[in-house]
Design a protein around this nucleic acid. Structure first.
Length: 841
DNA sequence: CAGTGAGCGAGCTTCCGCTTGACTT
C-alpha cells in the first residue's frame, strides 16, 4: 500500500490519530474551515440563484499549499473532518481547493478518537454528502445575507459600525427583555412563619404551611400561638433518590465552571483548550453527552478501585438539546485513571471538575429517606411542617453534585435530620418568628446562564457561545458589571413565652455580581430591530430555519429555493425599512425644566446617551444645553430630577491662586480641575455640594504627593522630569514616558543624558511636536494616534516610548514603539501584553 | 485619563462557524 493522507480539523487530533494508524498514513489538519465567502461585499450572487463566491482565507494559504503538495504524492486522500454539517462542508471545500480526484478521495467519519473507532472508519468510507454540504451553504449564505443587510440599516438609522445577526441580535433581545422585566417588577411581601420546637432533648425546626400577607394577620396568628399546645399530627417517611447529571458538553461545562469556580465563559474555554492540547481531555467544543465504550470501561475500573463495586452503575445519556449534531464525545478526561493533573492552578481545578462529573455520571443513584412531620396547633387550623432528610447511600454524591443557578434563597437548611418522633407526641414551642419576605425579580443573566438559554433555543453552536458573548459586549450592546445593592427594611415578629416582640431589620437587596446589563444603545437597536424585523428576532427563527436545513440535508428541499423563499420577503422589508423608518435615537421626554420652562429629553448622541434642555434653533436664536449621562444611568430609567442635576456639572466652586476650580464627574468618578490639572474627589465628597475650601485642600494634598514623586527637574523644560512612575523611576515628557536604562542612576541624570535616552534631540523635539499636534487635533475627525505612531517609529524614535497605562490601549495593541537601534536600546518596560502572548506552559 | 453634542462627505464598518496562528533576537 502506498502513502495515505488523512485530513482532520484539529492538529491535536491529527497527532493522536497518527499514532493509531501506523507509518503508511500521514495525518494533517486543516485548522477548521479553509474557505469562506469572499470578505468584500456579499459574496453571494443573489440574481444568479444565490451562487456563492468562495476564497481561501488568507491565513490558510500556507496550509492549503502544503496539503496540495502532500495530496499529489498520496495514493489516497481520506477526508476525516467532523461528522456534522460544517465538517462535511470542510471536506467538500478541501476536495475543491485541493483539486482532488474522485477516485483518489474518500470521506470517513468517527465521533470518538479511539483506535477501534478510527480503524472502523477507515474500513467504512463513503463519498461526500452533497446534500449535507448544501445545507451548510444555505446556513452560511443566510447568515451572510441577514448580517450584511441588517447591519447597514443600523449604520444609517442608529449609528455607524453597529451590527446585527441571527444569533447576536437574539442574545441582545434576551438581555434587554429580562432587564425590562426586572425594571417593571413589583416586589410584594408576605410573612413567613417558622418555629423551633423541643421534642425531648432535641430541637425541631418547622415552617408554617401558609404565609400571611400583612403584619396584622401574622400578629393575630402569633397571639393565637401564645396559649396553644402542639403535637405531632402525622408522620410520613418516603424513600427518594437522586441521579447524576450527564457528562459535560461545552455549554454545561461553561455553566458549572461559572457556578462552582467563578470562571467566565471565555476563560473556561481557554483553559479547556490548553488541557485538550496537552492531551488531558477530549475535545471541548461539543454538544454530545456520549462517552465512548473505552471511557465507560475506564470509569468502571476507576470507580471499583476508588469507591467499590457498589458505587458503579453504567449509564448512557441522551441529548436533550434540539439540533445537537453530536460529532464528538462528551468532554471527559482522556485517561480516566489520571485523577489529577499538574500545572496551572485553574487548569487543575477545571480538570478536577471534568473528572468528577465524568466519574459521577457512571455511578449509582444516591438514596435518601425523606420524613415529613405535621405539627398541629390546638388553637387554630394551620399546621407546622417539619422536614428531615437522611442520606441512606451517598452513591454519586460522594464525588459530585451539580450546582443550580438559583441558590439565592435556598436557606431551607437542607437535609437536616429529624429526631425520632411519634404521632401524638407533644412538643414544646421554644420560639416562633414571623419574618417579612419579599418576592424576587427574575434573575439577570450571567454569561453562563445566557449560554444555557441560547442552547435551549437552539441558537448558536459550541464553538460560538464564547465569541457571541464577547461580540455583544464589544458592540457595546451589553455590559458585564456588578451593582451595589440598596438597603431595605423588613419586619420580624418573635414570640417567646407569652411575649410578641416586633423588630425592624435591614437587609441589602438588588446587589449583582458579573451580570449582563443592556446598554442604552443595546436597547435602542433591539427595539428598532424588533419593530421592523420581528421574524429574525423571533426566538424560534433559528429553530425554524434549522428544520429547513435538515430537509436540505435529507435531499427533500433545494437549498437555493429555501434561500429564495426566505430572501424575497426579507429583502422587501429591508428596502421598506431603509426608506421609511425614522432615525432612532431612543428619544424620551422627561418633562419640563422648572427654571427655563423648556422641554427636557434624553437621547443617543454622537458620543453616547445625553440629556438635553431645549432645542437649537437659529431663527429663534435658541440653543440647546447638553449633558452626558453618567455610566450608571440609563435613558429608560433616569428621572427628570436626576437629569437636571447633570446640568449642574461641571460646577465652578471658587478660585484658588487666581484660577477657577471646576468640579465635574468624569469616567473615573468625581474630580476637581484647577489650572488644567485634575484631582479626584474622595468618596466622602459629594460633587454637587462640595465647596471651594475643601477642593483647595484636596489640590494641595495632591500637589504634595506629586512633588514627592519627582526625583529631578530640568530648567530647560518644565515638562521634563525624572520621577517615580508606577513601575519605578522613569522620565516623563508631558504625557510620554521613557524607561531609564538599568545602569544609570535616576537622580544623577543630566539633561544631556535624558535627551540621549529619549533618542537624541530630533526625537525629543518630535515627541513635543506630536503631543502638541494631538491636543490641537481634538474635536477633529478621528483619532490621530495612528500618524503619531508612524512618525515616531519611522523617523525619530531611538528609544522606547510608551503611553501612560490605559486598559484599552494595552489590550488592543502594544503601544511600544520599538527602537530602531542597537545595543543601548532598552528592553520592554511593561508587561502589558503579557496576557496575550502567554502560552501554554 | 477626565471636555465634545456638527453634517463641504472620502471610505469604512457588518454575519456565523470551523480551528489555532505568532516576521524577529
Amino acid at each position: 500500500m502506498g502513502k495515505n493522507l488523512v485530513i482532520v480539523e484539529s492538529p491535536a487530533k491529527a497527532k493522536t490519530i497518527e499514532g493509531f494508524l501506523g507509518k503508511d498514513y500521514i495525518v494533517k489538519s486543516s485548522f477548521g474551515h479553509i474557505r469562506d465567502l469572499v470578505k468584500k461585499g456579499y459574496g453571494v450572487d443573489i440574481d444568479n440563484n444565490f451562487t456563492p463566491t468562495y476564497e481561501v482565507q488568507p491565513d490558510k494559504e500556507k496550509i492549503i499549499a502544503e496539503l496540495k503538495k502532500l495530496s499529489k504524492g498520496a495514493d489516497m486522500v481520506w477526508l476525516a473532518s467532523d461528522e456534522d454539517r460544517e465538517g462535511e462542508a470542510i471536506s467538500w471545500h478541501l476536495s475543491e481547493a485541493l483539486n482532488l480526484e474522485k477516485k483518489k478521495t474518500k470521506r470517513i467519519v468517527f465521533h470518538e478518537i479511539t483506535k477501534p473507532a478510527i480503524l472502523k472508519a477507515i474500513q467504512n468510507p463513503r463519498a461526500i454528502d452533497i446534500n449535507l454540504v448544501n445545507a451548510q451553504q444555505a446556513r452560511r449564505v443566510l447568515d451572510r445575507l441577514v448580517g450584511f443587510e441588517l447591519s447597514p440599516i443600523l449604520w444609517r438609522k442608529v449609528r455607524p459600525s453597529l451590527s446585527a445577526g441571527r444569533v447576536q441580535s437574539v442574545a441582545v433581545r434576551l438581555i434587554v427583555e429580562r432587564e425590562r422585566e426586572v425594571q417593571n417588577f413589583k416586589s410584594t411581601s408576605a410573612f413567613k412563619v417558622s418555629a423551633l420546637f423541643i421534642a425531648g432533648k432535641a430541637t425541631v425546626k418547622a415552617e408554617l404551611d401558609k404565609r400571611f400577607n400583612t403584619e396584622a394577620e401574622a400578629q393575630k396568628f402569633l397571639e393565637k400561638c401564645k396559649t396553644a399546645n402542639y403535637s405531632i399530627g402525622n408522620l410520613e417517611t418516603k424513600p427518594a433518590k437522586r441521579s447524576p447529571a450527564a457528562p459535560f458538553t461545552t455549554s454545561t461545562l461553561q455553566q458549572e465552571a461559572s457556578r462552582k469556580l467563578g470562571f467566565s465563559v471565555s476563560q473556561t474555554m481557554m483553559l479547556a483548550q490548553r488541557l485538550y492540547e496537552a492531551g488531558k481531555i477530549t475535545y471541548m467544543r461539543t454538544d454530545s453527552v456520549n462517552l465512548s465504550e473505552t471511557a465507560i470501561n475506564q470509569a468502571n475500573e476507576a470507580i471499583n478501585k476508588n469507591y467499590g463495586k457498589k458505587y458503579y452503575q453504567p449509564r448512557t445519556f441522551k441529548t436533550k438539546t434540539k439540533g445537537a449534531q453530536e460529532a464528538h464525545e462528551a468532554i471527559r478526561p482522556t485517561y480516566i485513571n489520571v485523577t489529577e493533573v499538574e500545572g496551572d492552578a485553574k487548569e487543575v481545578k477545571l480538570y478536577d471538575l471534568i473528572w468528577k462529573r465524568t466519574i459521577a455520571s457512571q455511578m449509582s443513584d444516591a438514596e435518601l429517606e425523606k420524613t415529613t412531620a405535621k405539627i398541629t396547633i390546638s388553637t387554630t387550623s394551620e399546621t407546622f411542617v417539619a422536614q428531615g432528610e437522611v442520606l441512606k447511600f451517598d452513591g454519586f454524591l460522594k464525588v459530585y453534585l451539580e450546582s443550580s443557578d438559583d441558590d439565592d434563597e435556598n436557606e431551607d437548611e437542607n437535609s437536616t435530620m429529624l429526631p425520632p418522633l411519634k404521632v401524638g407526641e407533644k412538643l414544646q414551642s421554644k420560639e416562633i418568628t414571623a419574618q417579612q419576605r419579599f418576592t424576587h425579580h427574575p434573575p439577570r443573566y450571567t454569561e453562563a446562564s445566557l449560554v444555557k438559554k441560547l442552547e435551549e433555543l437552539g441558537i448558536g453552536r459550541p464553538s460560538t457561545y464564547a465569541p457571541t458573548i464577547s461580540t455583544v459586549q464589544k458592540r457595546n450592546y451589553v455590559e458585564k458589571t456588578d451593582r451595589e445593592g440598596t438597603p431595605r427594611n423588613y419586619s420580624v415578629l418573635t414570640l417567646t413565652g407569652a411575649n410578641v416582640k416586633q423588630e425592624t431589620k435591614t437587609e441589602n437587596t438588588g446587589a449583582e455580581k458579573s451580570k449582563l446589563f443592556p446598554t442604552d444603545i443595546g436597547m435602542v437597536v433591539n427595539d428598532f430591530l424588533l419593530l421592523h424585523f420581528p421574524e429574525i428576532l423571533d426566538f424560534h427563527f433559528t429553530a425554524k430555519v434549522e428544520e429547513e436545513f435538515d430537509e436540505i440535508a435529507e435531499g427533500k428541499l433545494d437549498w437555493t429555493k429555501m434561500l429564495k423563499d426566505f430572501y424575497k420577503p426579507f429583502h422587501k422589508t429591508v428596502e421598506k425599512t431603509t426608506e421609511n423608518s425614522e432615525r432612532q435615537s431612543g428619544e424620551r421626554e422627561l418633562g419640563v425644566d422648572p427654571v427655563s420652562k423648556k422641554k427636557v429629553i434624553v437621547r443617543i448622541g454622537r458620543f453616547g446617551p445625553l440629556a438635553q434642555i431645549g432645542e437649537t434653533n437659529e431663527e429663534k436664536g435658541t440653543k440647546a444645553q447638553f449633558a452626558a449621562l453618567r455610566k450608571d444611568q440609563r435613558m429608560e430609567t433616569i428621572t427628570l430630577d436626576d437629569a437636571l442635576l447633570l446640568f449642574k456639572m461641571p460646577r465652578i466652586v471658587g478660585e484658588f491662586e487666581g484660577k477657577e476650580m471646576k468640579v465635574g464627574i468624569g469616567r473615573f468618578g468625581p474630580y476637581v480641575v484647577h489650572d488644567s490639572k485634575f484631582t479626584s474627589l474622595t468618596k466622602e465628597d459629594d460633587p454637587y455640594t462640595v465647596n471651594g475650601e475643601r477642593c483647595t485642600e484636596l489640590i494641595k494634598v495632591k500637589r504634595e504627593k506629586d512633588l514627592a514623586k519627582i526625583i529631578k527637574t530640568f530648567p530647560e523644560n518644565p515638562n521634563l522630569k525624572v520621577q517615580f512612575g508606577r513601575w519605578g523611576p522613569c522620565i516623563t515628557l508631558g504625557k510620554d514616558f521613557f524607561r531609564i536604562p538599568k545602569e544609570k542612576e535616576p537622580a544623577k541624570l543630566s539633561f544631556a543624558d535624558v535627551i540621549q535616552i529619549i533618542g537624541g534631540m530630533d526625537a525629543y523635539e518630535q515627541v513635543i511636536a506630536n503631543a502638541d499636534k494631538k491636543s490641537k487635533k481634538f474635536g477633529a475627525k478621528k483619532d490621530k494616534a495612528e500618524p503619531k505612531a508612524k512618525a515616531a517609529k519611522g523617523k525619530t524614535s531611538k528609544a522606547l516610548v510608551f503611553k501612560a497605562p490605559s486598559k484599552k490601549v494595552s489590550i488592543k495593541k502594544p503601544v511600544f514603539k520599538k527602537a530602531a537601534s542597537k545595543s543601548t536600546a532598552p528592553k520592554r518596560v511593561i508587561k502589558a501584553t503579557r496576557k496575550k502572548t502567554a502560552k501554554r506552559k
